[in-house]
Design a protein around this nucleic acid. Structure first.
Length: 335
DNA sequence: CATCGATGTTGAG
DNA sequence: TCAACCTCGATGG
């Protein structure tokens, strides 16, 4: 998936391009026909993201909850204006982590070959289907000759169409209408999200929870009830950056390290939302950094690097199954 | 062209 | 613990 950063980007796109507009709703695929008919003709009132879930509010106290799951995605088309908070492809970094390296001056970020950074498609890593029409404030590359509304391609669970904008949802794990109470209940089950919760309160909640549990920190970071928005990539990278063995029970992780992990996640999430990429590396030597950023499969410290030498100590990165997910880590750096 | 796997979650057994 | 969900790019023949 789409870890937390993608969902926040999607919510901002809805905020910028759908809120305040009336939509025609349909389910070309048919699997959300009933829900679409309820949404049809309503105005979009607000959009919010919490962790990996997005909540879209419609007039009449009606909410749509969407979870993209493993391969869901939203495709945007039409006169999509770029939310200024996600417009930049240039990441700003400036921080240190447990490794003690200075995370600074990322320089130009190479755009994702897989379109993750695309303005037209956000979600599972795949090429954009949507077309974003040119306008003075738009970054899109499309011409003005496309059909309107755009032809439906493939399996579209839900299409939301305003006069100028179109959003197609495909492959979600959850797409469900909810009452305000149900939305509140869904959010209440989630751990703190750095972009939703107050920084200090979120840190306290996360720290207290982790320090109470015998469960391994590797599992805790993936538990959406402990902290929202972290997925398999961010988990591996956060643990590497903290130089922490993923098997360490939560209650045995030093409190300061737990707090560092929360703060590191907060920073990485902000960078991810701004750039549309899961930026987790810092400034090795610039040549290695540039190479890592240019290559889709080689831009992380440990994720997807099983058998390759650790970028710092040269030890082979290992992969193991943890709760049916691949866990990558450096057995030498992470103690 | 067939098969696999993936940034995820749920629910059955 | 594991299959199912549901989509599609990558991989291999």
């Amino acid at each position: 998936m789409p870890e937390g950063h993608s969902v926040h980007r999607i919510a901002r796109q809805f905020d910028r391009n759908f809120v305040g507009r009336t939509v025609t709703a349909s389910s070309p695929q048919g699997r959300f026909a009933e829900g679409a008919s309820v949404l049809d003709g309503r105005e979009v009132v607000s959009a919010r993201a919490v962790g990996k879930q997005m909540f879209l509010e419609f007039d009449g106290d009606l909410w749509l909850r969407v979870h993209l799951g493993l391969y869901g995605a939203w495709d945007f088309a039409g006169e999509i204006l770029v939310d200024p908070t996600i417009a930049s492809a240039n990441g700003r970094m400036g921080q240190t982590n447990q490794r003690g390296t200075d995370l600074d001056a990322a320089g130009d970020v190479v755009l994702d070959a897989d379109g993750e950074n695309s303005l037209a498609s956000i979600g599972a890593p795949r090429r954009a289907r949507g077309r974003v029409r040119m306008s003075e404030q738009t970054h899109g590359l499309g011409g003005d000759t496309e059909e309107w509304p755009p032809p439906v391609v493939g399996q579209v669970r839900l299409r939301l169409l305003s006069a100028e904008t179109c959003a197609d949802l495909r492959g979600p794990t959850a797409c469900q209408l909810q009452t305000p109470d149900e939305v509140a209940a869904a959010i209440a089950k989630l751990g703190p999200d750095p972009l939703v919760d107050d920084a200090a309160a979120g840190e306290e909640r996360f720290t207290a929870t982790v320090r109470r549990k015998p469960t391994s920190i590797g599992l805790l970071l993936m538990d959406q009830g402990v902290v929202s928005g972290i997925g398999n990539v961010y988990r591996a990278e956060l643990l590497y950056r903290a130089l922490l063995d993923p098997h360490t029970p939560g209650k045995l992780v030093p409190e300061e390290i737990v707090r560092d992990i929360w703060r590191d996640w907060s920073r990485l999430l902000v960078i991810g939302v701004e750039t549309g990429q899961m930026m987790t590396m810092d400034d090795l030597d610039s040549e290695a950094y540039r190479r890592a950023m240019a290559s889709r499969d080689d831009r992380h410290w440990v994720y997807h690097r099983a058998g390759l030498p650790c970028r710092v100590c040269g030890t082979e990165i290992v992969v193991e199954e943890m709760a049916a997910r691949k866990l990558y880590w450096c057995p030498s750096c992470q103690k």
